[in-house]
Design a protein around this nucleic acid. Structure first.
Lengths: 335, 335
DNA sequence: GAGCTTTATGCAAACGTTTGCAATAGGGGC
DNA sequence: GCCCCTATTGCAAACGTTTGCATAAAGCTC
């Protein structure tokens, strides 16, 4: 079994110094003689000593914790299942750790409505990264107004007074459209829900590019949830009712694209011969699906870094602005 | 901007009571008159008051936090990308929240080698859930010996003195083998790395079932990393060198199965006519792939609940034992 | 109305750090 | 030998809760 927990005072006694000296030694404070510092650090290591974070946070009024708030769209409590979102969280985690911070994984369920109160006043975290603007933009707004250090993963073009990091969704939509047109598409279809900020921008860019190329007839829109199941169902229904009246799909996410592909393949619609498909995100599956999926890649690694850096800059009192990540078309077999 | 943070003493003053009364009122302590309790709780809500968690933790010697430690196999710092793992984490998160705890997302990188010291002595969490036994079972072992409240997601058959929750991997392997045989497979192939505890059990169950059915020749084994890319490469190589000398695949995970499927499809090997495939996990993609993937489903929701409940039971001083989750074969088109 | 129990509240200590300030010692200049 | 300066260390307060114990008021018994 474990021996009783050492506190700083015990360690100090072992070393024959005062607690203040021990504290400074562990923090490598130059006030303390180099030799003493090393001796105490050595001693701490030998005894597996670690500071009581609770006490330290209380005293310092700083937690060294960043909360990641997954902003679930649905009111129903449910686990996240889009691999892309999880990838983003995972990359944020890495970036957070690299800066010596810890990651509190939270969600709208835990935090309630008063985010500032819960996280900041409650001394649970020093700042918050919100993943997904969701439909509760009001909550983000009010937390930001209350002075909560905050960065949001979303669409950076959104007119908001909080800091947003996200991909250039409009350009993404445009690239997808240009690509489909260059492949000869005459009747493109957009698959997704433009009410959602990021997806809305993708839709706008998509439509604008198509209009500018003078495709006859406007671009078709099929509003669905961001799940492969919804896409599968929607495409199935559409084929049954309208027949195959499109020759290109731009899906708002890879999962959606994959769901659509499945429906098409089951009905022997050839990809890419009959229908060209472009997705969004570039999750691992995009490369593994057959045919592999052409898609717009979002750089989650850079996103993680940027989100964290901007948040830390805010904590340092710097003025920070939204920024947009470059995206890029990855051509594969589906188009 | 936000007004200056209220502390409990301020709230008490507003209510015209002492801090102790305010504290008890907020915790619904029956010592305090019902009416007073309600009045103070109401006041707290109005003023968006929240307790300083750091102070509370210091005083209570309890954090109400559970750490989830992702035990990455590789030494290289890298983000997790298997959707299944992330699903597990996500379901743990739900279960943790449901119990009123918070989730600290951590990894072997942050925690160093002395997990007990870091999490427990450091008062960062009350207990730890380790996801993935990985190759550092020694670290788990020593943390457990040190008395760290701990539950591990892994293979419950492992002979260890810490508590493990996981699927019945051996049975999973057996089910997969029986299924492939019932489909007429004569030359099955196992895709995965049996050194890994969970996968090893799947392999054992698989081989045992095959041997008992008297398939001539032993079961082929292709050792690969648990990624779709590795599977894709390995199957490609194998087809080039050995030709198609197998007619069934049991992949250690769905991602691996999907990678293998891609390689086969690219070479016009028909699934399931030429090769039957069974995966493991039942991630969302299994249903969306084409052909959809027959697989052994792991119940992550139940896993999350069980992991958390067992951990909390430990915190309550109860004796807890490992347990095994039921799994089930989900038949789809790939077999 | 004295004594006792019950109900409701307040006082003050403790949790384990960090840090401003004071204190001590040693060294050098004169 | 005295003074001052620097280098190193220690003292004690403060961070904001929670809770054992003391207290006070009120109700009850006889």
């Amino acid at each position: 079994m474990h021996q009783k927990k050492l506190k700083l005072a015990d360690l100090a006694k072992l070393a024959g110094v005062s607690t203040s000296t021990a504290s400074r030694a562990l923090n490598d404070n130059p006030l303390i003689k180099q030799e003493t510092r090393e001796r105490i650090q050595q001693l701490a290591k030998e005894h597996n000593f670690s500071l009581n974070a609770a006490a330290s946070r209380l005293r310092l009024q700083k937690t060294k914790v960043i909360a990641v708030l997954i902003n679930l769209d649905s009111e129903t409590e449910q686990s996240i299942d889009d691999p892309f979102l999880l990838k983003v969280v995972s990359d944020i985690n890495l970036a957070v750790n690299r800066q010596g911070y810890e990651l509190l994984l939270s969600n709208s369920f835990m935090a309630g409505d008063d985010w500032h109160g819960y996280f900041i006043d409650g001394r649970r975290a020093d700042g918050v990264i919100v993943v997904g603007q969701g439909k509760q933009q009001a909550l983000i707004e009010s937390a930001s107004k209350a002075g909560m250090p905050l960065v949001v993963w979303g669409d950076p073009k959104t007119d908001a007074d909080y800091v947003i990091v996200g991909s250039d969704n409009y350009l993404g939509g445009k690239l997808a459209a240009d690509h489909l047109i260059s492949r000869g598409c005459k009747a493109p279809l957009f698959l997704g829900e433009p009410e959602h900020a990021e997806i809305g921008e993708r839709y706008n860019g998509f439509c604008a590019a198509i209009a500018s190329k003078g495709i006859e007839g406007e671009c078709q829109l099929l509003k669905i949830d961001i799940t492969s199941q919804a896409a599968y169902d929607a495409i199935n229904l559409k084929l049954r009712t309208d027949g195959l009246n499109f020759d290109g799909i731009f899906a708002c996410s890879d999962m959606v694209a994959l769901g659509a592909m499945k429906a098409l393949k089951e009905r022997y619609v050839s990809i890419p011969n009959d229908v060209h498909i472009v997705g969004f995100d570039d999750i691992a599956m995009a490369d593994v699906s057959f045919p592999s999926l052409t898609t717009i890649r979002q750089d989650t690694k850079q996103a993680g870094e940027l989100l964290v850096n901007k948040l830390l800059a805010q904590l340092d009192g710097e003025q920070v602005v939204s920024s947009q990540l470059a995206i890029k078309l990855v051509e594969r077999q589906s188009s």
